[in-house]
C-alpha cells in the first residue's frame, strides 16, 4: 500500500453518507521499531475535507499557522467544514471508499486537534 492510496480517497460514514475526501494523513512517530534505530511513523488519523479543492496549504497546523492575514482568512473559510477522523474510527476500505464505523456527526472539526483535551 502507498500513501497516495489514502490521499484524495472518498470517505463515507457508517450510514453510507458522504463525508468528503482525504486531504492529509496525520502521522505519529510511535509505530514499530525500524531496525532498532527509530520508531516508524504510524497513521494516527485522516483529515477529511468536504470540498474538492484538496490542498490545505498548511491549514492542518491549526491556529499556529502563520501567514498573511488575508490568506489565512481565505483558507479558514474554505476549510471550515474540515473534519478529523482517528484511525480507530476507520472501518475499512470498500472498493473506492473509506468506510467509517461512526456517523458523520460524531466526527470532530479539525481544530479539535489543537484544543486542550485533543489527542
Amino acid at each position: 500500500m502507498r500513501m497516495s492510496d489514502l490521499i484524495a480517497r472518498p470517505v463515507v460514514d457508517s450510514a453510507g453518507e458522504v463525508v468528503g475526501q482525504v486531504a492529509d494523513v496525520r502521522l505519529v512517530q510511535d509505530g514499530p521499531m525500524l531496525r532498532q534505530v527509530q520508531h516508524a511513523f504510524r497513521v494516527a488519523g485522516l483529515i477529511v475535507v468536504t470540498r474538492h479543492t484538496g490542498r490545505l496549504f498548511g491549514y492542518e497546523r491549526g491556529p499556529a499557522v502563520k501567514g498573511p492575514w488575508l490568506v489565512r482568512k481565505v483558507l479558514r473559510a474554505l476549510h471550515r467544514n474540515t473534519r478529523y477522523v482517528t484511525w480507530e474510527q476507520v472501518g475499512g476500505i470498500d472498493g473506492q471508499d473509506i468506510v467509517l464505523r461512526v456517523t458523520k456527526d460524531r466526527l470532530p472539526a479539525v481544530s479539535w486537534l489543537y484544543r486542550e483535551g485533543g489527542p
Binding site: 500500500m1 497516495s4 514499530p32 497513521v43
Partner: peptide, 28 residues
C-alpha cells in the same frame, strides 16, 4: 514521490519507505 505503507500487528498502517521515480510519481 510517494510513501510506502505496511500494517503493524494491530492492523494500523505505518510508513516503511520513501518511494521515488516515475513509477511512484506517475500514478500521483
Amino acid at each position: 514521490d510517494d510513501l510506502e505503507l505496511a500494517l503493524d500487528d494491530d492492523g494500523r498502517p505505518y510508513v516503511t519507505a520513501i518511494l521515488m521515480g516515475p513509477l511512484a510519481l506517475g500514478p500521483r
